[in-house]
Amino acid sequence: MIAMSQTFKAFFSGGFGQVDYEPDLYVEAVEEVLKTLADDETGGYQVLRDEFAAHIRESSFPPSSSLDSQWTTDEWLRDVWYDAFGPEPPPGDPYPVPTEHWGHLRQTDYMIYAVKDTPEHSSPGAAAWLERRGLTFGEVRAGVLRPAAECINVRPAPEGWFERLHDLVERGLREEQPGER
């Protein structure tokens, strides 16, 4: 998988990619996933989900700016994946996040924007979202306010990371990004 397909771009740009500009659209996109998957008679959504997994597996979703790295971009994509689909890592992810980190040591944009102290102050879909992930409002809020020194939101890039990127470039699976040599 080298380039993002046009339909994947559409799928990502309408909601998952909106958190910095329109967090409401991000929250909506996350909450609509369940219904969309349930209604997915043609399997079209599954195709988009598979492509999403491939971009994480092969580091082929380019960083948003020259200040972001491929590693931090991939870590963010793992957060988006969790927000959308839950703790089961994307198929083939070489660096899966330990399940127990989610909501406790690691916070996602949905947790920050949609989950508040009480259900009344939270997004209408938050209760269902939490339940499916085995988390409570209290746990997630405690995680969001946890001392920074105890959090593992973005892991350090693993040993051999650049070699892996170079290999993926050589195999034609991704395009090299600035600053990787």
Partner: peptide, 11 residues
């Protein structure tokens, strides 16, 4: 036509 399988799009 341009969104394909997606039910939303940012242009």
């Amino acid at each position: 036509r341009n969104a394909g399988l997606s039910s939303s799009i940012g242009v």
